Amino acid sequence: MTVAVEPGAQALFDKFGTYILPGRVNDPRRGIDEAKEAERIGLGCVWISERYALKEPAVLAGAVAEATSKIRITGTMYATMRHPLVTASVADMMQAMSGERFRLMFARAVPAYMKMLGSPPITMERLADLISICRRLWAGEKVDYDGVLGKFPAINLTDRHGGTPPPIIFTAIGPKSLEFAGEHCDGVLLHPFVSAQGVKNSAKIVRDAAEKAGRDPMSVRIYHNIIVAPDLPKDEEEAVVGGRAITYFELPGFGDLIVDINGWDKKVLEQIRAHPKIAGLNGKPADQAYTRQELVDVSRLIPQQWLDEGAAVGTAAQCADQLMGFLDAGADEILLHGSSPKDMGPLTAELKRALGAKGL
């Protein structure tokens, strides 16, 4: 007997995922429940960020793999914080533990933050070498490396999964990082508050770079990270969208790249960075100093246009329709961010409606 599949359900699973444990947390076990809920409501992937507190991706990814059965799992790691053998081993073991549901994502982080931790900056050269080492180790090679990452005369995975290696995703904003993703990675995650036009611009840079490198441009998947606030009370919406936005826009370099790719007015960034709460940080990231709620007053400096074009806010139906625009612009998969899976049930129902209406 053939079981009927609800219209839009497969497309929802293929094209939408969510962060678990968004923001700062004090109970990491909540992430397991969020992953189970994400799978229950039909989302296809959970994403785990890296924070050196109660959000270690290697540990949480293993717990999620055991608690779920089909949802994909993407774990973020900072490239210079672990020995390459450890990074490759964690990803290989996660493929084995999860039934090949794991994806490895590398993030660059804010240079000042890496310096504060005493870790080398995450340069493109270091990333390229790490990606090469991981792939060679996954293929069963013994690696003799002497380069910018250090000296590793004989490293190999003595016991390995040996199946499909995990896809490597890179978070990127500016043209150089987007080109890097096209040349070296299996996918690229675009930054929150990149508009639909920004997605289109970014996808072109990635795929042109892949083609120039002799790769199939369509083999590099475009993932987009979008802050969503469906049917939230006003105060919570301001924290989820506006408060979080400030943690991106206040960062020198990061905020500028988002504004550049969207064609927005950079003078707004000057006003944000001049706010007493931000000016007093002296380079420390705002999300290390404040909660999202504590940044709401700063967020009122952000033009409404930026929030309308860069996020999905309003009723669940309005959010779903806004998200379709990002798929139309070239995103292969969307990472829903800011809201918890427990608040996304109505949104996923509306997403199935919108996807079904598009024949997906």
Rank of each mutant, 00 (worst) to 15 (best):
A245R: 00
A229K: 01
A289I: 08
A4W: 00
Q288Y: 10
L257F: 15
E37I: 14
P192C: 05
M324D: 08
F254K: 00
A67G: 07
D308V: 01
E179S: 13
H83K: 13
E294I: 10
S202Y: 06
P57N: 10
R273K: 07
V86K: 12
A239T: 04
R273W: 10
I155N: 02
L281D: 02
A107F: 03
K115A: 14
R244Y: 09
A139R: 07
S49T: 13
N282E: 12
A128W: 07
M81W: 13
V3R: 13
K115G: 15
A63P: 10
R101N: 05
A311K: 01
G325P: 07
L130V: 05
V110A: 11
I20D: 01
I41N: 03
S339L: 05
E238N: 14
V25K: 05
I173Q: 06
V206G: 01
M116Q: 15
R126K: 13
C134Y: 04
P346G: 03
P233H: 11
H224D: 14
V240N: 05
V148Q: 07
T74K: 11
L336Q: 06
P230L: 04
P252Q: 02
K352Q: 13
G99Q: 04
L323K: 09
F152V: 03
G150A: 09
E294T: 06
F13L: 14
M218L: 12
G23H: 09
I20S: 03
D27L: 12
G8Q: 03
E6C: 10
V148D: 07
D27Y: 06
E211Q: 15
N26A: 15
M124W: 12
F16Q: 07
R292E: 10
G140S: 10
I122F: 11
S202M: 06
F13N: 15
K115L: 09
L360D: 13
G243W: 04
P303H: 10
E125M: 07
